[in-house]
Simulated assay, not measured.
Amino acid sequence: MAHCEHVPTAALAADTVLSRMRALDTALPARDGVAVFHRVYLAATREARPHLRGGRPGDVAATALDVRFAERYLAAVDAAEDARRPPACWRPLFQFRRHPGVRPPQFALAGINAHVGHDLALAVVDTCRTLGCEPVELEAEFDRVGDLLAALEEHVREELLPGPDLLRVTDPLTHLLGSWSLERALDATWSAARALWALRRLPDVAGEFTERLDAAVGFAGRMLLTPLPD
Results as ranks from 00 to 15, higher is better:
92 P>W: 07
108 A>K: 01
74 L>I: 04
130 T>E: 15
130 T>Y: 06
99 H>W: 11
71 E>R: 13
40 V>P: 04
93 L>N: 12
44 A>E: 14
41 Y>T: 06
92 P>F: 06
55 G>Y: 09
76 A>R: 08
94 F>Q: 11
110 A>F: 04
75 A>L: 07
87 P>V: 11
121 A>H: 05
75 A>H: 10
65 L>H: 03
102 V>A: 04
106 Q>Y: 05
116 V>A: 06
48 A>P: 00
101 G>E: 05
104 P>Q: 12
56 R>S: 10
67 V>N: 02
44 A>R: 13
50 P>W: 10
96 F>Q: 15
66 D>A: 10
49 R>A: 15
51 H>N: 05
76 A>F: 07
96 F>Y: 14
86 P>A: 15
80 A>H: 13
87 P>N: 11
117 G>V: 11
112 I>R: 08
107 F>P: 00
69 F>V: 00
80 A>C: 08
75 A>K: 04
117 G>F: 08
80 A>Y: 09
86 P>G: 06
46 R>P: 01
96 F>R: 15
84 R>N: 06
48 A>Q: 13
78 D>W: 10
109 L>D: 02
40 V>W: 07
105 P>F: 08
95 Q>P: 00
97 R>K: 11
97 R>A: 13
79 A>Y: 05
82 D>I: 00
53 R>F: 10
62 A>R: 15
56 R>V: 11
114 A>K: 05
59 D>T: 03
105 P>R: 09
90 W>P: 03
72 R>W: 10
105 P>Q: 06
88 A>I: 00
91 R>V: 14
57 P>F: 12
121 A>W: 03
76 A>M: 10
77 V>F: 03
114 A>C: 04
111 G>V: 02
68 R>Q: 09
108 A>I: 03
63 T>D: 01
67 V>L: 05
124 V>R: 03
42 L>E: 09
51 H>A: 15
75 A>T: 04
109 L>F: 12
92 P>M: 08
59 D>F: 06
65 L>Y: 04
43 A>V: 03
111 G>K: 01
52 L>H: 13
92 P>D: 11
103 R>C: 02
89 C>P: 05
89 C>Y: 03
89 C>W: 02
56 R>W: 08
56 R>N: 05
70 A>W: 09
128 C>F: 04
123 A>L: 04
104 P>T: 09
93 L>E: 10
63 T>G: 07
122 L>K: 08
106 Q>R: 02
99 H>A: 10
44 A>D: 12
60 V>Q: 07
96 F>D: 09
104 P>G: 09
52 L>C: 13
68 R>D: 08
99 H>F: 07
117 G>H: 08
102 V>D: 06
